[in-house]
Design a protein around this nucleic acid. Structure first.
Lengths: 196, 196, 196, 196
DNA sequence: TATGAATGAGCTTTCATTCAT
DNA sequence: AATGAATGAAAGCTCATTCAT
């Protein structure tokens, strides 16, 4: 009955951690509340004390991901310097951040359809703002002549973030490349493809 | 009570079609057998006559996707001509094919974890062969000096197919670009990033 | 596991019968679906095959009561003859019918608040029509001079049906009086109180 | 978070008041302890400080009702004067008292089966004593020749109190008649039906 | 006197699947 | 080839109650 989760970690945190791990491993619907609470070493009642529902748990995971992403992108987009450098830095960073929180991102792209319609809408809107932020950087580069302008900036974002999202399908921490190395390569490919 | 599915379409086909649509829309676990058979205008017994289980239905969808992809890639990889042209053609084609069967691909990348472990392994292996096929094309280009060689060909494949897989998240038939247009743009970006 | 309910009685009927008995005995909320299906000798799935929900079961019990009551009152109100005789006959009959289906009526007055608001409204409306039917008989008597007119007919109905509803609280088949005897006495009291 | 209940009202009283209101509105089983304590503006611990259990709350409501009824009947039965006058006064009073505490009486007749068997027995016994008290008045009238004797006094009590209990189902303070008016009418009907 | 985190048992409901017909 | 009644297991969730503080 006692689980791997450290006993002294606050219950709420432990529940979110185990839920994240299990949702990434077996999917949201494939994970029962019983499995989550057993892994966290508590009973169902405890979970329902902290979260309104299983859906609520998922919602909180989404909120955490969105918060993290927005925070990081802001940091890089606002840095002074040539736009190409900023795009590169942001591109590397988003990959490093993604592989550091791979479970979160696996859930993010696989379980969107499990969210309540409203929540889903809110998440998509927030995500869209994030993409627009990145797109604006690309646009800035195109206008400055640093990037080619014959590809819609919007499409470049979808192109690049596809690669980012897909990391969850193949990247392994134990693999031959670190997250940073992958980030550098991907950023290289992106910037090369944007050369005027 | 009568469903939209045409009555004279063979039952088996109708079941797979409705299942594909529903799995893509609501997820595998979120779709009940009852919903599938109702949409197909038959009863459960009929479904269990044609398919061993709900999992079996999913397995067949995966088989169909794999068959389709392999078939298409073969066609382009084996064409004579400069390797860069072949890569470009294959790249465009994979995107066109993907958007033409978007539901299949949405399911493919979202529901892998629902397959029985063995099936999952088989699907991944088949998928890997497919990637290797594409990777070999890239390698061929690198060896011929047509592509830059400072990025692992493997990584290029993961990079590009990430963008392909992600189509299901944003591409809409009613959107501003056709599948072919997106394919051309993406192929452009890929080839530009591989320029030596 | 095998219960008292006769095996060859149709499952649906058996479920309604046992539910009625148990709801009357222990209340709607105090009776679990498990208890009902165990008593009927089937499993939960069978119940949910025939009824949409536990609430649906209750709804059907209400429908049965209303149908029965309306049917009986119609029969007596439409009979030719002096109005006093008709009121008396209807009064006796409603009591005989009530004690013959005592469980139904115990549930009727105790569990109204468990129905979904809409259903509750519909039941009340039907019930009101029933009361109005009876009230109209009283009114007819008042107009004809057969009954005193200084008490609102509406109130007479509430007065008399209170006594009827209350039967569930004290009447026992094994008691000293039969349903018919109680009916005769109550009808006597009612008609005596209406004497001009 | 702060509830309607006045803060300075003793907690215990407030809890009973809100419980009474909620039990009458939604039933005993349909009301959660959380709802009661929220309505009273306290937490669960507070409730369990004053009451041993949720059942205990219900038990106390029954005790309050029984105390009130007995007290009132005593007052009227012991008054000097003709028996018919005393019966009439008691009958009017029981109705006035009932409509003044309608929630209490709604609970009384609807939730009896929720009490622990022993408590239920005790409540029924106390209630029986109350009825016997009233029956003895009727008997006294019959013996004195003031009332007809061809109806068992016991049955007269069941007849009349049925009407009283039923008040909870239809009487509304905002309706056309006051409690006293209804009481006068009902007492009229009762005495008329008892005329020799 | 009162809090609120946590329990544990039980609830209604869903669902893939089976099987006699 | 197909029906639909019935199963049995498991799911998400609720709730009265306890207890350290």
């Amino acid at each position: 009955m006692r689980a791997a989760a450290a006993r002294d970690e606050p219950v709420r945190r432990r529940l979110m951690g185990e839920a994240t791990r299990l949702f990434a491993e077996k999917g949201f619907e494939g994970t029962s509340v019983q499995e989550i609470v057993s892994a966290a070493g508590v009973t169902k009642g405890a979970m329902y004390h902290y979260f309104a529902s299983k859906d609520d748990l998922l919602r909180e995971i989404y909120a955490r991901v969105l918060r993290l992403q927005t925070e990081r992108l802001d940091r890089f987009a606002d840095t002074p310097g040539p736009v190409a450098d900023r795009v590169r830095a942001a591109a590397v960073d988003v990959i490093v951040t993604t592989v550091e929180n791979l479970d979160d991102f696996v859930i993010f792209f696989r379980s969107m359809h499990q969210l309540a319609p409203e929540t889903q809408k809110a998440v998509r809107a927030e995500r869209r703002r994030y993409h627009e932020r990145f797109r604006d950087l690309v646009l800035e580069g195109q206008r400055a002549g640093a990037f080619r302008a014959d590809v819609p900036a919007e499409l470049v974002v979808d192109y690049f973030f596809g690669s980012v999202h897909h990391l969850g399908s193949w990247f392994r921490a134990a693999g031959p490349l670190t997250g940073r190395q992958v980030g550098e390569h991907f950023a290289d490919l992106l910037l090369a493809s944007l050369r005027p």
